[in-house]
């Protein structure tokens, strides 16, 4: 029997509970968004944060070219990527072959893997599904397993990996620290690859809310109920404020409207949205959905702190968002009324 919180037992290999020097040396971003990688990637929220939007995209089209062009257009330097650990994070919440618009399409994951491989990165993928304990089932049902196998991209099961506590870099919720999987903390760059959907609690989900999925279920549960008690918007902000550098590639080709993020209906948009600042990308997506981004709880918290939400600070690359607006249906419930632009 043992009571010491961090005791190593019987000489067996144990998972450390907190960051140690080795982990820090392995990962560029472990100390949060202010760490090494951040300063390379971002000039800070005060600077404009460009967002690239491409239209007429199809899952069987040349997504590799669109992603490559988009990433370069928003200022990602392929030379910087060489040799870096790049972690792809699709959204695989409750995958179902009957509901493909619920999760990131495998073709988008495959395209991202190909682009970063071609740029010389060490590419990995990972996810910690929030409702499903069998992660392999989520991978197979979503179709993502096949593309990872084909691209020889290793998968990190965030729900069951060794989890390490880091200080809550956002401190808007009551959570003093956040537990992240080792592979997340060791990544030089996280690529949030969400499906653009409405969300019945937060209004919308895109690249920032997608990062709920980096938190391990073993620590936060299925669902990650601890975060609900902490406040979803605050938890989203805190997670984003505590992670290594994140960029966003949003699958908005076939989106979900209505009762998202699980039970909504397909909304074909044919778009990909790309940016180095998730706040700016999600704000742009909100505008395209016909929502006022400052009224989305986590974007309101992030505005001016994690990135810009104001239109004047988000230079448009590719298509103008104003030409793409197609309001998404949202549930008629009190907490979502008033989100419309």
């Amino acid at each position: 029997m043992a009571d010491e919180p961090e005791r190593i037992v019987s000489g067996s290999q144990a998972c450390p509970r907190r960051l140690n020097r080795r982990t820090l040396l392995l990962g560029a971003g472990a100390a949060g968004a202010a760490a090494v990688g951040s300063t390379v990637l971002y000039a800070g929220w005060q600077s404009p944060a460009p967002v690239f939007v491409a239209r007429n995209q199809r899952y069987d089209g040349d997504l590799v070219r669109t992603l490559r062009d988009g990433l370069v257009a928003v200022g990602l330097d392929p030379q910087w990527v060489r040799g870096k650990r790049v972690l792809l994070k699709p959204n695989l919440v409750e995958p179902s072959r009957a509901w493909p618009h619920r999760t990131t399409h495998p073709a988008v994951v495959a395209a991202a893997a190909e682009v970063f491989h071609a740029w010389g990165a060490q590419v990995m993928a990972g996810e910690g599904p929030g409702h499903v304990r069998d992660t392999e089932w989520a991978l197979v049902e979503s179709g993502v397993q096949d593309v990872l196998d084909a691209a020889r991209v290793p998968f990190c099961d965030f729900n069951y990996e060794c989890a390490l506590a880091v200080p809550n870099g956002g401190r808007t919720s009551t959570l003093r620290e956040l537990y992240f999987p080792e592979s997340v903390l060791q990544a030089d760059l996280i690529v949030s690859l969400p499906k653009l959907k409405t969300h019945h609690w937060t209004g919308m989900t895109a690249s920032m809310k997608n990062l709920y999925g980096v938190l391990p279920g073993t620590i936060y549960g299925w669902p990650k109920n601890v975060l609900h008690y902490a406040g979803i918007a605050r938890a989203v902000f805190d997670i984003n404020a505590s992670l290594p550098p994140v960029i966003a590639v949003v699958d908005a080709i076939v989106c979900m409207e209505g009762d998202g993020p699980i039970l909504g209906t397909p909304k074909p948009m044919g778009l990909l949205a790309i940016g180095r600042t998730p706040t700016a990308v999600d704000a742009t997506c909100a505008r395209i959905m016909g929502l006022e981004p400052h009224r989305i709880g986590y974007l309101a918290l992030a505005a001016g702190r994690l990135g810009p939400v104001a239109e004047s600070k988000i230079p448009q690359r590719g298509e103008r968002w104003q030409d793409l607006v197609e309001p998404f249906d949202i549930l008629d419930v009190p907490h979502l009324r008033g989100l419309r632009a």
């Binding site: 043992a2 919180p5 961090e6 005791r7 190593i8 037992v9 067996s12 144990a14 998972c15 450390p16 509970r17 989890a163 073993t218 620590i219 549960g221």
Partner: peptide, 9 residues
């Protein structure tokens, strides 16, 4: 707990 180091949850 989850393992030797994580006594909670």
């Amino acid at each position: 707990g989850i393992d030797a180091a994580h006594r909670t949850p």
